[in-house]
């Protein structure tokens, strides 16, 4: 598998993150109600959205693997889900910090957003346990892909089910158009931060893809050099 565009993507993520942080601290106005602590919004919300999209993209690649049997899709599903797991931990941490400063509590059970995100986190936390407890590489890829599709479908369903609860304490940042939406400078800052996190996410996905496929190639070469062809060569499995 070839991974292209790592250098420009890395430079772009660093630049966008620098610009984003500059805008957050020097351009975006202080929130009238929450003051300085509202700034975490520019980190928490993009992370949440990107994390969820990543889970769904992982499910999409799982589906592609089941359709085509091309192991590179399984690898992509793995990497997207892995990166989204990391992002999900960050969402839970930044959310807890924001909740503590804005509501006075690290965690609220009456908030559908928090609860459904926790469910998702718990579901995806079992992905590696499932994957690495299956020895046969093809069976492993297939089970992991089935899981990725089922859990990916669970993302929107879960949010709908839990959201049927009534109380909304968590701000609906992106759909309060009735109040005139986000003010201009806030919206610009938010979009730049969103772009920065998105580019960073894609860059990290590409780095992990490169690292994983290089490891597989290295192992295959080692096995060939050692004359140990009893095991199926991983490169052969990857290209099968």
């Amino acid at each position: 598998m070839t991974v292209r565009g790592l250098r420009p993507l890395s430079i772009l993520s660093v630049a966008l993150i620098a610009i984003g942080f500059g805008l957050v601290f020097f351009y975006a106005p202080l929130d009238a109600d929450q003051g300085f602590r509202q700034k975490i919004f520019y980190l928490h919300v993009p992370l949440g959205i990107i994390g969820l999209i990543g889970f769904i993209v992982g499910g999409w690649h799982g589906l592609r693997y089941l359709r085509t049997g091309d192991p590179s899709h399984d690898l992509k599903a793995y990497v997207y889900i892995h990166q989204s797991q990391i992002v999900a931990v960050m969402v839970l941490i930044t959310g807890a910090i924001w909740g503590r400063t804005a509501w006075g509590a690290w965690w609220r059970w009456d908030e559908p957003f928090l609860v459904s995100f926790l469910f998702l986190f718990l579901i995806y936390a079992t992905y590696q346990v499932l994957r690495f407890s299956i020895d046969d590489p093809q069976r492993q890829a297939r089970a992991a892909s089935v899981f990725a599709v089922a859990a990916g479908a669970f993302v929107p369903v879960n949010f709908t089910v839990v959201r049927m609860a009534n109380e909304y304490l968590h701000p609906r940042t992106l759909d309060n158009a009735a109040n005139g939406g986000l003010p201009g400078p806030v919206l610009v800052t938010f979009l730049v931060c969103f772009g920065a996190i998105a580019v960073l996410y894609v860059t990290l996905v590409k780095y992990e893809l490169l690292s994983k496929s290089t490891t597989f190639r290295l192992r295959a070469l080692e096995r060939r050099a050692g004359g140990d062809d009893l095991l199926p060569r991983r490169s052969a499995v990857l290209q099968a």
């Binding site: 718990l122 579901i123 079992t126 499932l130 407890s133 299956i134 020895d135 669970f154 839990v162």
Partner: peptide, 19 residues
């Protein structure tokens, strides 16, 4: 085909069953 079936099944069923 998993090595740790009895470990895996409860931790996967519970979050899926939550809703």
């Amino acid at each position: 085909g998993s090595r740790s079936r009895e470990l895996l099944i409860p931790i996967m069923v519970v979050p899926f069953a939550l809703p």
